[in-house]
Design a protein around this nucleic acid. Structure first.
Lengths: 229, 229
DNA sequence: TTTAATAAGTGTTAAAATCACATTTTTTTA
DNA sequence: TAAAAAAATGTGATTTTAACACTTATTAAA
């Protein structure tokens, strides 16, 4: 059956995922050694192709789950990369997504069939194709997101200290923050619950653990706010 | 020649353009009556398909130029829309772009072969497919952009009054602004040049015309800044 | 020619937000 | 019991933001 679209070009649509993780100190990204030509053996983002039967969000979720085993992950569409020669094999447009996860909770479930490893975002290795550009754009989006959504929490374990939360924001924004000012700004968001429990690993005194107030957190995630750190 | 991508699905990649214009009072978008089935006769964004030989930015520019005659227009990629059934004819992913133009300067050069007309963004008509969603997302991006780039200027004639600039920002943000505060914030951006000329159309006293300082403007457009209105 | 009308132009002040900054507390281990 | 280590906590100065009203320049009408 003919239709007016029949003379148009069709292309491959890739989905590449920038997976951010945090391990108490540094912001990391998950990379794999590409196991097919071209650029076999080089480092690459986790990626795959869109199927006709799914939308891009679903494809991103499927690809992430397939290559890592991760489920229920925060993902957001980033940008479509479309330079004509970006993939030497064939004309491919790639829609990048970024995801946020907590390294600790997810490292054991990492699917070992694929050689995925965490790399620090600072001094990251060179990636194939235009994947470096994707990472740079993802970082810049992530920085913006911290100012509009309570996003950083996705990267932390369920219970965490203020210090850890601050380290996370410092890693994302790549700058030092003042402890007292940070705490009062975070508290003013009104999404945290202070627990009676202390974390005794980091100091002799021990530091209080926090978790978020699920309800308030969901509320703030759907609204917009402004957090200037 | 076979390669590892051969078993993957290929899809049509559309590019749809949200073209914002400003006519001294209201923020508008340019729409066309679709002249082919399905949904023939209904209102739609300006769109077309990506060719294998071009990237998305080039496709957006080509499509805009072809359907309107406009050239040298500010465009920015917005988002990829990919619901499986978004286009009933065939699986199509659409990457939306938005553009900003000055209605006055461009209405005469509007290509009359296509039945393109300006519609107010407030009380806009219902559009085909998911084009309404695209418009909503474009407005929200545009609002954000006003806070980070000297973007609004693309929508004004070369010489304009402070009043016109304020009206533009009011239309984009959909709220009233204080005249004195607005002027001082704009001036602090340091991109405007006050001319000796006055616009005598709007009042008996006449109001000074401004243009931008090209050099400073370009500087600020590439940097980021923060303008809270 | 005087007056009425119209939008333009212009500063100040109070309130709120931001930033810089240092000491005390708790606990463990030597 | 003293020393060490990180946690916890508040204030004051500065900057930014927001609210607010009268005077000026000009033209058209009386």
């Amino acid at each position: 059956m003919l239709n007016s679209y029949d003379t148009e070009d069709k292309v491959l649509l890739a989905v590449d995922c920038i997976i951010f993780g945090f391990d108490k100190e540094d912001l990391k990204i998950l990379l794999i050694k590409r196991d097919f030509e071209p650029e076999k053996g080089k480092l690459s983002l986790i990626g795959g192709f869109l199927k006709k039967s799914e939308n891009l969000d679903d494809a991103a979720t499927r690809i992430l789950n397939h290559l890592t085993g991760f489920q229920d992950i925060y993902m957001e569409q980033l940008y479509a990369f479309s330079e004509v020669d970006r993939d030497p094999v064939e004309r491919t447009i790639s829609v990048a997504y970024y995801a946020l996860i907590n390294v600790e909770n997810h490292t054991e479930e990492l699917n070992q069939d694929y050689d995925a490893k965490w790399f620090s975002v600072e001094n990251a290795p060179k990636l194939i194709f235009d994947h470096d550009r994707m990472v740079r754009r993802a970082i810049s989006r992530l920085r913006y997101r911290t100012a509009t959504k309570p996003i950083g929490f996705e990267l932390l374990p369920e219970k965490f200290t203020m210090r850890q939360l601050q380290k996370l924001y410092e890693a994302i924004l790549s700058k030092k923050l003042d402890k007292r000012n940070f705490i009062s700004k975070i508290n003013s968001l009104d999404v945290l619950v202070k627990l009676d429990e202390k974390d005794m690993l980091s100091s002799r005194k021990g530091s209080y653990l926090y978790k978020f107030d699920q309800e308030k957190y969901m509320e703030k995630s759907t609204q917009n706010f402004s957090l200037n750190l």
